[in-house]
Each structure stands twice: as C-alpha cells, then as structure tokens.
Amino acid sequence: MRQMLAFTLLTLLVLASGLGLAVAVLSLPDAPTDLAARVDAGLDDSGVSHPVTAVLLNFRAYDTLLEIGVLLLVLTGTWSFGLERRLDPEGPVGPIQAELVRNLVPLMVLVAGHLLWLGSKAPGGAFQAGAVLGGAGVLLVLSQHPLPAWRHPAGYRATASLGLLVFLIASVATMRDGRLLEVRGREAGLLILLIEVAAAISIGAILAALFAAEAPETATSLDERKEPQP
C-alpha cells in the first residue's frame, strides 16, 4: 500500500517536472548571441572548414582535451576493479563468425581512416573514427582474437594514453604568451590533424578495452591459463 502510494506520488512528481520542462523549453527566449555566425566568421582562421570540427578542436578545444582525459580516467577506474573477461569461451568460434570478422575488421579500419580524414571538411572526425575502431575492437574481443596490443600491457597502456599525451604536448608546444590552445591558420590545421589521429587511435583502444573490462595483466594471465598444459 505504502509502495503504491510512493509510486503514484513519484509518477505525478515526474509528470509535473516534465510539464515544467516542456513549458521552459517552449518559452526559451532567442539566443542573445548568434553563435553560428561567430563560428562562421572564425572558420577561415580555424584550420579546418567544417564548423563542428572547428568548434571541437579549435574554439572549444578544452572540452575535447578534458573529454579524452575523462576516457582515460574511466579506463583506469575500470581496470582497477580487477574484473575478468566474462566471455568465457564456450567452444570454438563458428567458422562464419571467424571469417566475417577476418574480412570486416580491415574494412572497418579503412572506414575509420576515411572518417578521420573527412572530419576537416564534412561530418566525421576523431570521435566517429574512434567509435568505428572501437567497434572493430569489440568484434575482435567477441570472436576471441586477442586485441592487437593485448599481449603487451605496456604497449596497450601507451596506445590508450597516446591521445591525451599528444594533445597535451601539442598544446603546450604551441603555447604563446601563456595562452593555451589558441592557434590559427595553417598551423592550426596541422595541429588538429595530428591531435585527431592520436585521439582516434586512443579512443578506439579505450572503447574496446572498456568492453573487455579486464586489465591487460589479467588478460595475459588468462590467455596463459587457456593454453593447454604440456
């Protein structure tokens, strides 16, 4: 009885808050500054020609820097829980799956590279490319392929932190008058490309590692355990 009452009360409360939210959204005043126009005005100086990429990696580059930091932090946190891969091999991977993954993964790497390159002038970029790379990694994990750097924990950690490291080094190297992440023109284009390549690789590695959830050390010991003892 009390539970029913609480449930009804909660539902009414949520409905009321939803109505309030709808009213608030509908009665929003027009934006005081036209951000789209300001982005357009600065686009020529940003090093890329796609406005979203310009915002992500030039005008609001701090967001992206911290975001890659968050990804790395989450990976460190997940690894610290000491989880084991739950996909216990229940028999061998089927031949269709094995063949599909063998053919699909190189194609996905190609698509990721294309998306990455596209980012400077069309929708695409490091995150989209990283997501496709991460998907390829998940496929590899699901079909019991060890991830490329899986057997070398140090190399895997380096791949995962590459994006943040390159971003930090590049932004400090181009710092002028103590102002971080304020680059323009051709220099900015090169910088963005460098950061995006490193970020895409790291994002892919981190997403695949988050899916597998176990720390690389556990993974190697697991692989050793799986091998038949002589």
């Binding site: 789209a36 406005p51 979203v52 310009a54 967001d63 975001e67 989450v74």
Partner: peptide, 17 residues
Amino acid sequence: DPVPHAMVLTGIVVAVS
C-alpha cells in the same frame, strides 16, 4: 548552430564512458 552539436558529440563520448 555547430556549438551544441560539438557539445553533444563530447557528451555522447562522456556518457558512453
């Protein structure tokens, strides 16, 4: 407006992690 789009892109990655 490209600014909310970029923020959403950032938000999606943070939400996934």
